[in-house]
């Protein structure tokens, strides 16, 4: 355990573990595609999408456009 970079790496690894939990990683898709393959989502994340709500692509565009006004 004499690696001088270890404390930094250990911190980074712990951060990695945290990020893995907090962020919904795996397949990243746009709103439309996520909806259209909802079945697949259910297969692998089960009810993890329970608490999820994805605004449609169009709404996002509108929201973004609205922000610019």
């Amino acid at each position: 355990m004499s690696d001088s970079g270890r404390p930094v790496l250990a911190h980074e690894v712990t951060l990695l573990e945290l990020v893995d939990r907090v962020l919904n990683k795996g397949v990243v898709l746009t709103g439309d595609i996520t909806l259209s393959v909802a079945d697949v989502d259910l297969v692998y994340v089960g009810l993890r999408v329970l608490l999820a709500s994805v605004a449609t692509l169009e709404e996002q565009r509108q929201l973004a456009a609205g922000e610019a006004l």
Partner: peptide
């Protein structure tokens, strides 16, 4: 506690309420 993940947002109270109602038993 059931932690929620980052990256999802609900448009409004209504959407949140609907999502919770639909999954209340599992939650």
């Amino acid at each position: 506690i059931l932690p929620a993940q980052l990256g999802h947002a609900f448009r409004d109270d209504g959407e949140l309420a609907t999502a919770v109602r639909e999954q209340a038993a599992q939650l």
